[in-house]
């Protein structure tokens, strides 16, 4: 299949076409993914997450320029929200990445979240594999602007950078559960704004309360993405963290957890789709029976998944 060869050669048209197949849920996509799987696992997958307007795209732009100066190749997946009403989306992350547009060592793909609620899109997991197999040294995933609980990025990234900005709330915010728990690196962007030092202090205080003794303490880095200030430090910390997890069993542990959740999720999808397509008329009649109290929902489910005799 030339598409596979084209992806493995790192040709941008092949990469782009394969990601489209994945987004379309085309049957060919699964066959192609089977064939590239052997070639994945080399790239460091970095997740950049944080609230809307915190400067994620600008940071990705600066970080990518820095990584490129070390002659490493970068694939970027930038996700913006899809309208739950029309299915349309306005994908605007490229506006902040114009400087990267003609760099042959950078591939950028914008994606709509298409109904996924955890900050990613369904297709982003497999799109990351395509970029990895295409020979990217780094794959950077920029999530949808998140609130407090969209943490799916931990199911995809080896390293998560959580971007925060001054003025988002008091110190109680910092000890809430959810996104504040997933940062391997904390970035306080817009550090020239009032209150930046207070955000740093609040994150540090939260980290002081961590009781897990052997876990590495995440660094807190101040940046100004528009000028590039702090990007060197961010890049150094990411590299240091990568070496640390790659040289211990931490990376393998994380990736195995990810594989487990992926295997379960694709199995779930497959079984569900099979039932929905094979037994849709049976479901209709069951709904009626359940409504009329002829059967309860749990017994109906058991009938639904029982193998046909």
């Amino acid at each position: 299949m030339d598409l596979i060869q084209s992806v493995l050669n790192g040709e941008k048209r092949g990469i782009a076409k394969m990601i489209t197949l994945i987004e379309k849920n085309a049957p060919e996509a699964i066959e192609a993914l089977k064939q590239i799987y052997q070639h994945t696992g080399k790239a460091a997958i970095i997740g950049i997450t944080g609230p809307p307007g915190s400067g994620k795209s600008s940071l990705v732009n600066q970080l990518t320029k820095k990584i490129r100066s070390e002659d490493k190749k970068v694939g970027i997946i930038a996700i913006d929200p899809t309208s739950p009403f029309t299915g349309g989306a306005l994908l605007g992350d490229r506006i902040r990445m114009q400087e990267l547009a003609l760099d042959q060592g950078v591939f950028i793909r914008s994606m709509g979240s298409r109904g996924a609620l955890g900050g990613l899109s369904r297709a982003s997991y497999d799109a990351a594999k395509v970029l990895d197999a295409a020979g990217m040294d780094y794959v950077i995933i920029e999530t949808v602007g998140v609130g407090q609980s969209e943490i799916d990025i931990v199911k995809l990234a080896d390293i998560v950078a959580l971007v925060l900005i001054p003025g988002m709330g008091d110190e109680v915010q910092a000890i809430k559960a959810g996104v504040m728990e997933i940062g391997d690196v904390f970035v306080v962007n817009k550090a020239d704004k009032d209150g930046a030092n207070r955000v740093v202090t609040e994150i540090e205080m939260m980290l002081d309360l961590n009781t897990e003794k052997d876990a590495a303490r995440p660094p807190v880095i101040k940046t100004i993405a528009t000028t590039g200030e702090g990007i060197d430090e961010l890049n150094e910390h990411i590299k240091k963290y990568w070496h640390q997890i790659a040289n211990s069993n931490e990376l393998a542990k994380r990736r195995k957890e990810r594989i487990r959740s992926e295997l379960i999720s694709i199995t779930e999808d497959h079984i569900l789709n099979q039932i929905l397509s094979d037994k849709s008329s049976k479901i209709d009649s069951m709904v009626k029976d359940i409504y009329e109290k002829k059967i309860d929902p749990y017994s109906a489910m058991e009938l639904l998944i029982a193998p046909e005799k």
Partner: peptide, 17 residues
């Protein structure tokens, strides 16, 4: 915006391309 509302995915790249 109109294309978005028509259910399309619109990639906007900004000025001076």
């Amino acid at each position: 915006r109109a294309l978005r509302d028509a259910g399309m995915e619109v990639i906007y790249t900004g000025l001076r391309q």
